Computed example of a mutant assay.
Amino acid sequence: MGQLFDSKLRLRHLQCLVAVASHRSVQKAADALSQTPSAVSKSVSELEEMVGTRLFSRRRAGLQLTAEGETLLASATRAFGALHEGFLALDQGSSLAKQVNIGVLPTAAAFLLPSAILSMQAEFPHLVVNVHSGLNSELLQRLRARELDLVLGRLPDPAEMYRVSFETLYTEPMILAVRPNHPLLSTAPDPSQVARYPLVLPLTGTTIRQAAEAFFISSGVAVPRPQINTLTEAVGYELVRRSDAVWFVPLGVVKSDLDEGDIMQVQIDTSVTRSAVGLSFLTDAPSHRLIELFADRLRELAASMRDN
């Protein structure tokens, strides 16, 4: 990696990083930023040179952040939030900026949240959006502490529902994903055959990990070993692409890869893992117009996903 801070770093480098990550396309990012594609590509290349590693990998579905790119994007998002808040404080003569604090699970962030943020900031240019990721239980704890305004994630366990209401946006199953030409694709497999291959699972303690384990238990199969546990999409994708590993992953995370044929779905019934993805609110929180508008935007986008 590059040095801790490069004096050549400019705001345009981070703007291009965020735009390309959101649109997964240099052309679309250039249109959003009113720049030329060559200018956007140059800024991304310069940023990669500064940090000393690739930030994007090219896939059929578009440009995909690498693990390093996801780390830098999270920091860039926080930096932009702080800058927006500072400018608003100067403009309004107050330290209080209009902002929304959202908690999101990594597996629920692929489409809905970036699209909602871009849509809201197009309508409210001075809106500050602070995005916090983590496990469902951690995010709900922060929601109850009023550190977050809402959480985009999966249906909580009943024990975690104290002072929390949940609204379903859509439901999705987990699937078993493998590389093209994987041996499991040439047969009519059953869950016991998955045990022959390395398994990529969600982290222990997560809702989707529990769903994965419930699938194997209901199939009368012990959870296979060896296994790799991760919530990072880039890691799961590369493990599958480079080996015979089987990735137990929510459908929405890899849908574009499935559509493009970069990843294939093993034809084993995993409908038992279907679960709700939605919004969690604090039941005793005061009404906030910006939060309501943001939630409405997420509902609209989720409805378009269901329609398609």
Rank of each mutant, 00 (worst) to 15 (best):
residue 94 S to G: 10
residue 95 S to P: 08
residue 96 L to T: 03
residue 98 K to E: 06
residue 98 K to I: 00
residue 98 K to S: 04
residue 99 Q to N: 04
residue 99 Q to L: 02
residue 100 V to K: 00
residue 100 V to I: 15
residue 101 N to H: 15
residue 102 I to C: 01
residue 104 V to E: 06
residue 105 L to T: 07
residue 105 L to N: 05
residue 108 A to T: 14
residue 109 A to N: 14
residue 111 F to Q: 03
residue 111 F to W: 05
residue 113 L to F: 04
residue 113 L to W: 01
residue 113 L to I: 06
residue 114 P to V: 04
residue 115 S to E: 11
residue 116 A to T: 03
residue 116 A to Q: 02
residue 117 I to W: 00
residue 118 L to M: 10
residue 119 S to D: 04
residue 121 Q to A: 02
residue 126 H to K: 09
residue 127 L to A: 00
residue 130 N to F: 01
residue 130 N to R: 11
residue 131 V to G: 01
residue 132 H to W: 07
residue 135 L to C: 05
residue 135 L to D: 14
residue 136 N to M: 08
residue 138 E to M: 06
residue 138 E to I: 03
residue 139 L to Y: 07
residue 139 L to T: 07
residue 144 R to S: 11
residue 144 R to L: 13
residue 145 A to P: 01
residue 146 R to Q: 12
residue 146 R to I: 00
residue 146 R to Y: 07
residue 148 L to D: 01
residue 148 L to M: 08
residue 148 L to W: 01
residue 151 V to I: 10
residue 152 L to V: 11
residue 153 G to W: 00
residue 153 G to K: 02
residue 154 R to A: 14
residue 154 R to N: 11
residue 154 R to I: 03
residue 157 D to M: 09
residue 159 A to P: 01
residue 159 A to C: 08
residue 160 E to M: 08
residue 161 M to H: 08
residue 161 M to R: 14
residue 164 V to M: 03
residue 164 V to D: 02
residue 165 S to G: 08
residue 167 E to R: 08
residue 169 L to Y: 07
residue 169 L to D: 04
residue 170 Y to F: 15
residue 170 Y to L: 15
residue 172 E to S: 12
residue 173 P to C: 10
residue 175 I to K: 05
residue 176 L to Q: 05
residue 176 L to E: 02
residue 176 L to A: 12
residue 178 V to C: 13
residue 179 R to E: 08
residue 180 P to V: 12
residue 182 H to Y: 06
residue 183 P to S: 09
residue 183 P to H: 06
residue 184 L to T: 13
residue 185 L to W: 13
residue 187 T to V: 15
residue 190 D to T: 15
residue 190 D to Q: 14
residue 191 P to W: 06
residue 191 P to V: 04
residue 191 P to M: 02
residue 192 S to D: 14
residue 192 S to C: 07
residue 193 Q to N: 10
residue 194 V to C: 06
residue 194 V to Q: 05
residue 197 Y to F: 15
residue 203 L to D: 12
